[in-house]
Nucleic acid binder design. Sequence first.
DNA 1: CCGCATCCGTTACGATACTG
DNA 2: CAGTATCGTAACGGATGCGG
Lengths: 122, 122
Amino acid sequence: MASRLEADSVHWRSVCPIASGLDVLGDKWSLVIVRDLLEHESRTYSQFCESPEGISTNILAARLKSLTVLGIIEHVDLDRPARNNAYRLTTSGLELRPILEEVARWSQKNLRELHPEIVTIL
Amino acid sequence: MASRLEADSVHWRSVCPIASGLDVLGDKWSLVIVRDLLEHESRTYSQFCESPEGISTNILAARLKSLTVLGIIEHVDLDRPARNNAYRLTTSGLELRPILEEVARWSQKNLRELHPEIVTIL
DNA sequence: CCGCATCCGTTACGATACTG
DNA sequence: CAGTATCGTAACGGATGCGG
């Protein structure tokens, strides 16, 4: 109940835009959630849970909350709470697409040796 | 001494190239180190410590090790150990540049409200 | 000194069970 | 269905030690 995420104050390590971007996106799950929303337009809580990476429910809830506070995602129906109310990307969130495309490109080119099962997309 | 990083076995959450990229780059420090090496060509251990984000020494050592195992960075002089032997990006590491450029662009455009002190680069 | 490794308290993560 | 509560584990972060 007393989670510090309520007033989601990011700790900005510096004024560098790269470091600041990583202050909000630099974890293992936020951009996976964004990926799902780029692929599917909108997703409910349980649909996120079905993704093959298998996020646990508390992490998902925390990330959805912080991404919402950051203005990257929002509920599809803005003022009806929760039940079957899917999430979608905001304008800010949609602009993350080039980052994910570059991550995918880099991984496909540079991770195949370490991770042969990786698939090719796009 | 018994650090599990010796045989750096990444846990691949899925076969998705985006998730796999985040399996290795999805933390707050790895790409900050890469940023320093894109800006400065080569950096020593203590030069990394001088960056404004203030990485702590144990985290720095761990990240340098895992980035080396992943083939993203290497020592400038490949077979002389440690002392004043700077790090540089490998070919794989140099190819991370587009990702960081997109992160910088996104942050400059979408983080200014939350973080007014953020600076503009490029 | 420089490049770490170790210790240790704090924070984040992850699996599972549970609730409105 | 959409989250919380709980609790064990792993990562982080600061201080400090130590070998070359």
